[in-house]
Design a protein around this nucleic acid. Structure first.
Ligand code: FES
Ligand code: FES
Lengths: 153, 153
DNA sequence: TAGAATCTCTACTGTTTCACTCAAGTTTAT
DNA sequence: ATAAACTTGAGTGAAACAGTAGAGATTCTA
């Protein structure tokens, strides 16, 4: 998995929406200002997340975006898969974006074998972490920014 | 970590060199034929690996490439880092290719926090797996291709 | 010592992706 | 009515990707 700027923006926008989860809606402008994301670009991204059913929008004056589901039900895996595509380091080990690579024999490829492990390790993390957990971590980091290193493992 | 075709080719070439580890040298043409890699492209890649001290070459007739170190001393991490750059999913959590991202406050960023875990998980694997292990896996897969799934973990 | 096979080095090229930007349109609160 | 918001689709400049090409240097062998 490699996150493009687009993917990073998507996660940051969802973090803002997660922190403001409730009835009301958040304007693009607010997210853009808060996270320093180019507004027109962010429009695209949120629209994209909408088509994935991750966020929903309200139009017109006093319009904006909100999460379409509870933060606890939105995994990073779902978001990244929609924005970036495969989580796997090579396409031949991807479950949902499988493409065979140029290896002569895929079934006996030791590289594929290792990459499968890498994929599993990544998936295990991003499928467990939700927007809700992102919010909790934001809270914890806000209170004790110096202990940041404790959360690595 | 996302492997480009270039990176995949590099690993496959090293696998061949690992399987043929010894005194003699292997021609580009041989690797190219064996692994179905465009020859001129492979030249570039092997040259690149040479500048990293991963392989060494012999010129002239009966020239070719060999591993510069014992297969057991060449980790996938070293190879991928040289060919692709950072292993981390975002630059702000990379140890050797660090670049700060556009987040307002890096020290309190929960996304960074999660991505650190992802990075650790990936590094843990690719820093442990060597070319030698790749060769052993190739051997095992050759003998029992049907048990491939057992190695996923 | 000529020649062929091999690596070396630099440069080029066409395609795709990335990160935006723009314009024009639709919806809705006031 | 109007302005502030989302919607849609297109456009753009730069960079990365996956090669390709050519001229040169080295070394074995005949
Ligand atoms: S089969 Fe995909 S890397 Fe070998
Ligand atoms: S600091 Fe890099 S993702 Fe937030």
């Amino acid at each position: 998995m490699k996150l493009s700027v687009r993917g990073e923006y998507a996660l940051r926008a969802l973090l803002v929406l997660g922190l403001n989860y409730g009835d009301h809606v958040v304007r693009i402008q607010t997210i853009s200002d808060d996270q320093k994301i180019p507004k027109r670009f962010l429009e695209q991204i949120l629209n994209d997340l909408k088509s994935a059913g991750i966020v929903e929008s309200k139009r017109g004056l006093a319009g904006g975006y909100r999460l379409a589901r509870h933060p606890r039900d939105i995994t990073l895996a779902a978001v990244v898969r929609h924005i970036e595509g495969a989580l796997a380091p090579v396409s031949c080990v991807s479950e949902r974006y499988y493409e065979k690579c140029s290896c002569p024999d895929e079934t006996r490829c030791p590289i594929r074998n290792v990459m499968k492990e890498v994929r599993e390790a990544v998936v295990k993390i991003v499928e467990r972490v939700t927007v809700a957990e992102l919010c909790e971590r934001a809270q914890r980091l806000k209170e004790e920014p110096l202990s940041a290193l404790d959360y690595i493992i």
